[in-house]
Simulated scan of single mutants.
Amino acid sequence: MAASKSHKGGVRACTEVKRVDADGRAVAERAAAEACSAQPGRYYADRHSYCLSDTRITYTLYDPGSGAATGVGEISLSSNAEPDANSGWWNEEFTATVTKTEGHVSSLAVNLTASCTNACRMINPDAWGTKVLVLRRSISSHVTYSSSPAKGTETMVTPQYSLKLYQPGDTPGDSYHNWSLPLKVRCDAELSGYGCVINQLQAVLKLPLSKYGEAAATYWYAQAELADHWGAPDNPLSRNKDEAAHKANRYRT
């Protein structure tokens, strides 16, 4: 994510979004980040979830005459979401923590809103309104996405975000940042109801011998030794949309 700058009303400020080294992480109290296994400043995803870990966003206030920096503030932003394979809506939880205030910046106003593309709408686009936080204070809340593609179709949803970060007393919106989730959430109504997953990540079927015994061994043999290699990397599993075929396959199995 890149920096965003602005110049309004004689006050110049900028926000910068960056990854941080481990030494810079000790202060924040981040419930969402602790649930995310990504490196700081990066996204992590599996088929049923995605999260953002400890992205540091810096706000710098400049003197309009000399151009010298007069203060710096920083927040840590983390998020966590779990699209539902059996539902067309999901929440994304955000936590913002003020990790630095220096000079003329003594507190930060934080406003985070979300939107989404294609057959998707926001039930709750505003995470927490505008909250003013001082050093080491956090705010947590969620936004809610809802996708309802037409029956028998699918849609690729991209969550998008807009963050306003400024010192109270400055012009709201002077410094802001916009970005998108680097992955897409696939929502479809191909079977009964709706469902959403991160479909760029292949589904994995786990059948441990300790739990399924001879059945697991049989499936392993079919995957490894039969010509079609069902479910192996060279022939990944795919969805069969035919309900009658589902029943027939289960009967034959």
Rank of each mutant, 00 (worst) to 15 (best):
L205C: 13
E92A: 06
T113W: 00
S175F: 00
A203E: 11
K164G: 04
D170L: 04
V110A: 02
N80H: 13
H142C: 10
S87R: 05
T158G: 05
P159Y: 01
W90S: 03
S148Y: 07
S106G: 12
L205H: 11
A114D: 04
V98N: 01
L163E: 01
G173K: 06
L163I: 08
T158S: 11
W179P: 00
P172Y: 02
S106T: 15
P125K: 06
Q200M: 11
V143E: 02
S78R: 04
E93C: 05
V132C: 06
I198Q: 12
N124F: 06
L205G: 10
S146M: 15
I75K: 00
A119P: 01
N178K: 09
H142F: 15
I75R: 03
D174I: 00
A68P: 01
D188L: 08
S175E: 05
H177N: 10
R137V: 02
D170V: 02
C116I: 04
V157K: 01
A68N: 14
Y161P: 02
G88D: 07
S140G: 08
P172W: 01
G73T: 04
L77W: 02
W89D: 11
L108G: 00
L205T: 13
P149D: 10
N111V: 04
T158H: 08
N124W: 12
W90P: 02
S192F: 13
S107C: 08
P172I: 02
I123L: 14
S140I: 03
D126R: 13
A81D: 07
T97K: 02
T155E: 05
T153F: 11
W128D: 07
L181Q: 01
Q160C: 03
P182C: 12
L112F: 01
T113V: 14
L191I: 12
A69D: 07
G152C: 12
S146N: 15
G129N: 07
T101N: 14
K151L: 13
A203P: 02
G88P: 05
A81S: 13
Y176K: 01
D84K: 10
